[in-house]
Simulated assay, not measured.
Amino acid sequence: MPGTTALYFVASPLQYLAARRIAATAEAGSRQVLIWYKHGVVSIIQPGEWDAASYMSWPRWEPLPGVFGRHRRLRANIGLVAGLVGQCDTLHIHSAVFDTEAINYFLRALPRACGARTMRARILPDGIISTRRYPLSAGKRLAQYARKLRRLIAPELDYWCFDGDRIGSDAAFCDRIYVLPGLPHEYPAQKVHVLPPLVEPAAGQSGPAGTGRRALVIGQPLTGFELMSPADLAAVTGEIRAWLADHGFDAIDYKGHPKDAQRELAHPDYRVITPEQTLEMFMAGTHYDAVVGVRSSALLFARQLYPATTLVEAFGWSRIRFKSTAEKQNMERTFAALGVATHP
């Protein structure tokens, strides 16, 4: 009898890197099957790392042509994934959320199609969403039962209704919730499983001859997008360089934004890097002792990617021209929730 198969549904670089970490640790020895359902994530996918891997069309946005295209796409997706999973005795289904019909129907359909006697659902970390609970409203719970009606014409489309948190953390089918080290969450303690850091220091990655501390400066077009005046940009650039010197960083890389033609935030003694792969995959393969910038979303990703020993710092926030007070407050809450330190 075939053993355990671990199936991962991913839609973001963070989810993909978490899936890779789970596959190498908690699911080591299992058959590994990856499904991605957002076109934008394809650039970081490495199919050769998996026993089977495929893109899956999202039924709502990519229905099959003709009448009942969304319904037929749901059924086609189950056939696609069942073929990749194959026969197994135990099936572990990983996803960041389970209240969407595009994922939920697999909970009952796949075990039947693959002969699995045991199925467990496990939740992938998903950035800021994973820091708090999102209770299902009464309307959302009623919508689940409406989705269950599909089984009247397609028995395999048997929606698994649940209540509590919308991602499925309270549901009976969920036995494990993966969280990133050092980040806050509101999940049941008995289900939480803390992942190892997604990136760990490797030999020879600490700077010249392994003696220095290594930092990455994330650039972005601040004056180009009128987020900061030239004078303020110069001041923040100096503040970042001084902070790096004070903290003993002597190997400093600079990664500009694709629209950062002027290399804003760069300093003459930084090493400008232009990695061929996406920034997410580059950081996933390169340890830094600090990642700094201003308000780039790459700082949020870095905080989730690197261990707590890596400093992630955002500078110049008193100098940024936010569109509104609400925008500033929302961004401050997001950075604070993920543990990114901000400097005025």
Score class of each variant (00 low, 15 high):
L195C: 03
L195N: 02
L195P: 03
L195E: 00
L195V: 05
P196F: 05
P196M: 04
P197T: 02
P197N: 08
P197G: 03
L198F: 08
V199A: 08
V199N: 03
E200V: 13
P201R: 01
P201N: 05
P201G: 07
P201V: 03
A202R: 14
A202Q: 15
G204T: 08
G204Y: 06
Q205L: 00
Q205S: 11
S206W: 04
S206N: 08
G207P: 08
G207N: 02
G207A: 01
G207T: 00
P208I: 00
P208M: 03
P208A: 04
A209I: 03
A209P: 03
A209H: 10
A209T: 06
A209R: 10
G210W: 01
T211Y: 10
T211S: 10
T211C: 11
T211I: 11
G212M: 02
G212V: 04
G212Y: 00
R213P: 05
R213V: 02
R213F: 01
R214S: 09
A215W: 00
A215F: 01
L216D: 05
L216Y: 05
L216W: 05
L216A: 06
V217D: 04
V217N: 01
V217H: 02
I218G: 01
I218F: 06
I218L: 13
G219H: 07
G219E: 09
G219K: 06
G219L: 05
Q220P: 03
P221R: 12
L222C: 09
L222R: 03
L222M: 12
L222Q: 07
L222Y: 09
T223W: 04
T223F: 07
G224E: 09
G224Q: 08
F225A: 13
F225T: 12
F225K: 09
E226W: 12
E226K: 12
L227N: 09
L227E: 11
L227C: 07
M228S: 04
M228N: 05
M228F: 08
M228A: 00
S229A: 14
S229H: 10
S229G: 14
S229D: 14
P230N: 09
P230G: 07
P230M: 13
A231E: 15
A231I: 07
A231W: 10
D232V: 04
D232H: 14
L233I: 10
L233A: 11
L233S: 05
L233M: 10
A234E: 15
A234M: 11
A235Y: 12
A235W: 11
A235M: 11
A235F: 11
A235P: 06
V236H: 10
T237W: 09
T237F: 11
T237Y: 10
G238D: 13
G238N: 14
G238R: 14
G238T: 09
E239G: 11
E239R: 14
E239A: 15
E239N: 11
I240Q: 06
I240W: 04
